[in-house]
Measured scan of single mutants.
Amino acid sequence: VTTYKLVINGKTLKGETTTKAVDAETAEKAFKQYANDNGVDGVWTYDDATKTFTVTEMV
């Protein structure tokens, strides 16, 4: 189990959260659900070296 981080660069919501998951795919599903629940829709990137997902909403 690995800890993954999500950085949110939203128009109205900004911040970070973490989740523990067995792999990046599982973490991504959890983060996308979290973003969807919070009304964040944007471009996703993932950095495997730092285990960090970033979602950026276009203005």
Rank of each mutant, 00 (worst) to 15 (best):
V1R: 05
T2A: 10
T2K: 07
T3R: 06
T3G: 04
T3V: 13
K5F: 13
K5P: 01
K5M: 07
L6P: 00
L6K: 00
V7R: 07
V7N: 04
V7D: 03
V7L: 10
I8N: 01
I8G: 02
N9M: 13
N9A: 09
N9D: 11
K11C: 15
K11H: 12
T12Y: 14
T12K: 10
L13C: 13
L13E: 07
L13G: 08
L13Q: 09
K14L: 07
K14D: 05
G15N: 10
G15R: 13
G15C: 13
E16R: 07
E16G: 09
T17C: 12
T17V: 15
T17N: 06
T18N: 06
T18F: 13
T19F: 11
T19R: 06
K20Y: 15
K20F: 13
A21V: 04
A21M: 03
V22C: 10
V22D: 11
V22T: 15
A24C: 10
A24P: 11
A24T: 11
E25R: 11
T26M: 14
A27W: 01
E28M: 15
E28A: 14
E28C: 10
A30V: 14
F31I: 02
K32I: 07
K32D: 02
Y34E: 02
Y34L: 06
A35V: 09
A35H: 01
A35D: 01
A35Y: 03
A35I: 07
A35F: 03
N36M: 13
N36Q: 09
D37P: 02
N38C: 12
N38D: 03
G39Q: 08
G39M: 07
V40D: 01
D41L: 10
D41V: 15
G42A: 02
G42K: 01
G42Q: 02
G42F: 03
V43N: 08
W44P: 00
W44M: 03
T45Q: 09
T45N: 09
Y46T: 01
Y46I: 01
D47W: 03
D48E: 14
D48P: 11
D48C: 05
A49N: 08
A49K: 11
A49P: 08
A49T: 11
T50G: 04
T50Q: 06
T50C: 04
T50W: 04
T50N: 07
K51M: 07
F53Y: 06
F53T: 00
F53I: 02
F53A: 01
T54W: 08
V55P: 00
V55L: 10
V55W: 02
T56I: 09
T56K: 05
T56H: 07
T56E: 09
E57R: 03
E57N: 05
M58A: 14
M58R: 11
M58K: 10
V59E: 14
V59F: 12
